[in-house]
Design a protein around this nucleic acid. Structure first.
Lengths: 342, 342
DNA sequence: GTGAAAGCGCTAACAG
DNA sequence: CTGTTAGCGCTTTCAC
């Protein structure tokens, strides 16, 4: 007997006494096959354990039924949530997802994009791309379908879904101000990412609205990772006139902030209020539970996928940037500042 | 000008004045090409923006240079760590990784395996498979290379890497016993997974070693998810004679336990000690930091990948199960029981 | 309805 | 060293 790995439509054709063209029709649910014949082929396929070779299908057919997803990293709840949304939408359409991790390496990113766009997949979903400029032009001009997720293009108008980062940061800062905080520390994310820039802008706008002077030393530049939160908080608390609240540009950094605050024997929220951004699952689990700005991550995945499917169906369709709303989630890590409360 | 998406080796051949066979040699770093010719081809490739079509390469060449990874889920730090290890090893060999998420659906799992094993990838890495029995036999008999990660086969002897789950659970339980705990609650994981079974067995063995009677009502069956930790802890604390320590089969459930404990106004570790398993990044970040059993997740990814590469190179090579050591990490969530300490 | 034939873009012998 | 020639397994015309 032939190895199961090598069963081709030709074997199925022989086994069911039809030409291999007919087998192909059965595979592709072509209507022009007599039900009886179809059944015979189906039986043979099952009996032989036939599985179509995708490489060959795509090479011949020109499409792969595969969507490529490029993510900087996994293991942060952040991406997992987005993927959940993508998977859900894709599953509905019978498309499969293949995920690539760039580990924040711009060269890998561009390389993957080149490969994927070259026959591996039908469309691309790019989460938090680092240097999209490197390849977006190429993608666009060759008409390859793609959607950016959580990227604030630097001018380019391309299909993208994000969240209202500016608004979220503004609202959170405003909330701290209304609580009575005047000195609010801010820890940024990767400043080459639009979302990080927007959060900083939102923070600044809120300060301006409430006529609070911006102190440059209250802004610490981080990279969205936990140690940055720790280092940032340490630096801020070392200031001659330290802040009474710290707003980190994501939850992971906020965890680092909490750690640093506690390690100095200060209490949250009594001595220092802490606010994060994202509302990842852990933010409700830490102690005290973290006040944060929620991003609708799963929904962002869903919407991005829908956009991509739309472009796939009608390549002419113009798709711009969609922004989903953020929401302030107040939990236990924030309170009025001590000097005012006491 | 031809669209960049359609540049084939034929175009490159024409542009550089050689046959397309030579272009293929250049692509594959064949030694039998005059340096001068090679350079000319390389130049043409760059000029035309040529990228080889992977589908065609695999169809013709019989290999894809792609490794498939099947995971139940993403977004738990657990998998992210493993992937980091896999990526590192694969990167060294110039292989790419494509990740599939099964969302714990057994049918999806079997389906993906069938597809992947059929030309999509050269080898398969399966993390925490749910129903490997469904396809392992097929995979084995057709000689398709694969390695299971963190799966305790139910009898089958196939390539796998895991951790010393029994030992880890034994050590942690022993530690609690030596602290003075006599009533130790245990929350299991998915009991159809070997690792979950082993952890339960390790817990039981430790109790037996120290002649502590096993109380069946102290064992709560969970599914590795946070709500289970919450529910399990709630059930255990409702017991007429509640435990003084709770050992959850993973960190995520331990977070749920901590939550439940706190919500009842009890203090950790003063009133209740809590222990987890895995040592995910967050376990050091929660308050109090969690005592847990560390699994060498990244290393598991590395070792599994090395095994797979070994099998890929020499299919005859027999590979069995490898177990990597676990280690107890003592942090702030454990202390002697109150009645004994006080 | 179904068979036959022409590729999809590339690798891998085989000649020279 | 380089050109030539078969396919890889499948989709898609085009006939009948």
């Amino acid at each position: 007997m032939k190895s199961a790995a090598k069963i081709t439509i030709l074997d199925v054709a022989n086994a069911s006494g039809v030409s291999f063209g007919t087998v192909s029709r059965v595979i592709n649910n072509d209507i022009h096959v007599k039900p009886e014949t179809r059944q015979r082929v189906l039986d043979a396929m099952r009996r032989l354990g036939f599985v179509a070779n995708r490489q060959a299908q795509s090479l011949a057919g020109g499409k792969t039924n595969l969507i490529g997803l490029l993510v900087p990293d996994l293991g942060t709840g952040y991406i997992g949530e987005i993927i959940r949304g993508i998977d859900a939408e894709l599953g509905l359409m019978g498309l499969d997802l293949i995920t690539y991790t760039t580990h924040r390496t711009a060269s890998k990113e561009a390389n993957y994009v080149a490969n994927l766009a070259r026959g591996m997949v039908d469309g691309l979903l790019l989460v938090l791309p680092r240097h999209p400029a490197d390849y977006i032009e190429t993608l666009t001009q060759r008409g390859f379908p793609f959607v950016l997720i959580d990227h604030q293009g630097t001018g380019e108008n391309c299909p993208a879904v994000g969240a209202t980062n500016w608004q979220g940061a503004y609202t959170a800062t405003e909330y701290l101000i209304k609580l009575g905080h005047q000195r609010i520390g801010f820890i940024t994310g990767w400043m080459d990412l639009g979302c990080a820039q927007d959060r900083l802008k939102g923070y600044r706008s809120a300060l301006r609205t409430y006529h609070i002077p911006e102190a440059p030393d209250l802004v610490y530049e981080g990279t969205f990772s936990q140690p940055d939160g720790y280092a940032g908080a340490s630096a801020l608390l070392d200031l001659p006139n330290p802040p009474t609240a710290i707003f980190a540009s994501n939850d992971v950094m906020a965890m680092g902030v909490m750690d640093a605050v506690r390690n100095r024997g200060l209490r949250i929220p009594d001595d220092i209020s802490v606010v994060g951004f994202d509302n990842i699952a852990q933010s409700a689990m830490v102690y005290p539970p973290l006040t944060t700005v929620q991003q609708p991550l799963e929904q962002m995945g869903r919407v991005a996928t829908q956009m991509l499917l739309g472009i796939l169906k009608d390549p002419e369709k113009e798709a711009g940037r969609i922004e989903l709303p953020t929401e302030l989630i107040v939990r236990g890590s924030t309170a009025p500042p001590k000097d005012r409360a006491g």
